[in-house]
Write a protein that binds this DNA or RNA. Sequence first.
DNA 1: TTGCTCTTGTCAAGTTGCTTGACACTCGAT
DNA 2: ATCGAGTGTCAAGCAACTTGACAAGAGCAA
Lengths: 202, 202
Amino acid sequence: MTATYRESVQGLLRERLLDAAQRVVEDSGWSAVTMSGIAGAVGVSRQTVHNELGTRHDVAQALAMRELGRFLDVVRERMAAADGLVEGIRSACEGVLELGRESVLIRTIVGSVPSENDADFLKILTTESGEIVDTAGVVVRQALLDNFPDVPFADDELDVAVESIVRLVLSHVTRPSKDPSRAAADVAWIIELSLAGHAARS
Amino acid sequence: MTATYRESVQGLLRERLLDAAQRVVEDSGWSAVTMSGIAGAVGVSRQTVHNELGTRHDVAQALAMRELGRFLDVVRERMAAADGLVEGIRSACEGVLELGRESVLIRTIVGSVPSENDADFLKILTTESGEIVDTAGVVVRQALLDNFPDVPFADDELDVAVESIVRLVLSHVTRPSKDPSRAAADVAWIIELSLAGHAARS
DNA sequence: TTGCTCTTGTCAAGTTGCTTGACACTCGAT
DNA sequence: ATCGAGTGTCAAGCAACTTGACAAGAGCAA
């Protein structure tokens, strides 16, 4: 798992490019991000940015996916630290929502004035969030199985439950309506009820 | 002073190569270091090692110079923290000698059985130590001037004093005869006497 | 000693990744 | 409407790394 030299170099370029893009987003919003600007900030040619990250839309998606990684780290930590399935879910949701409130990138995008065309970026977190939901789903599922192997759901049931959790949390991130702790408790409450119903039917 | 992307990549290759070489030295001695081994450990071709580091002898020198950097960091720290010229010199010497006793690389080389041809490497610290003395001299000189601008030596006098300090310390590193604190006090004592003599003559 | 093997130092040719310059296209501003 | 700025894409050039090769030296065995 240790990164080889060549991987490190490739990874370094990608990280630097995304760092530069993120800095601009956080300072001036997504509309201020240009491919030339990214290239200039890192000291490579614009073509290299296209080679490495693809189109401008791909840059937004890559930024979102990288930020997603930070969130999934929190999920793994919280799940591992909790005792009990429902408490693990609640704690993980809470952690994610707190991070979502603190993340400059998320706040910049979610909190942007709708008129600005930062909406391009916001769409990735909402209407185009397919890959995010998928990736997060895989991680959450695995974290659940790792830490609570006796989860009573069957495989396909677990898929549905996980996807529901992810979608609920993503919704609370993009459109917060209450404290992270309250929102997390709400999500956990739904799951707890589902578990109870599942037990009663079997 | 922040490293640009391209500098980072070049520096990364060099660091990885030296890391690999140092690992072998610390585990199995200098004689076990091969150019192919370094290349293989980092995942580049042997030719690239030659391009980046030169000959095998150059690798040993580069390792020594890199380790020297760690020592000079200590010098700068200690000088900045001390109050008084002589105390700064004493503290810096002490720090360097302690680090020399703890550095695995230094202990491996200095402590190697003379019969082994790790002596190749040892020579760099002793008979071929020209560049080391020069580099260390420049840094020590600057550290002295930065922290004790009222040092009473003239320029050429300072050169002699600094070089003497460096040579004394290097000798204590390669052939320790007493505690770092004792050896450092000895060096400082010499300098203190020189300063007193200098003052008396002027 | 001869012969075998490993390593070094070096070269030339091939591959890969980044740069440069160019072109067509879109979009907002003058 | 046209200008300027940005995007997306291409081809040619360039620098770094790879590959395969070779001569030379050191260590070791028969």
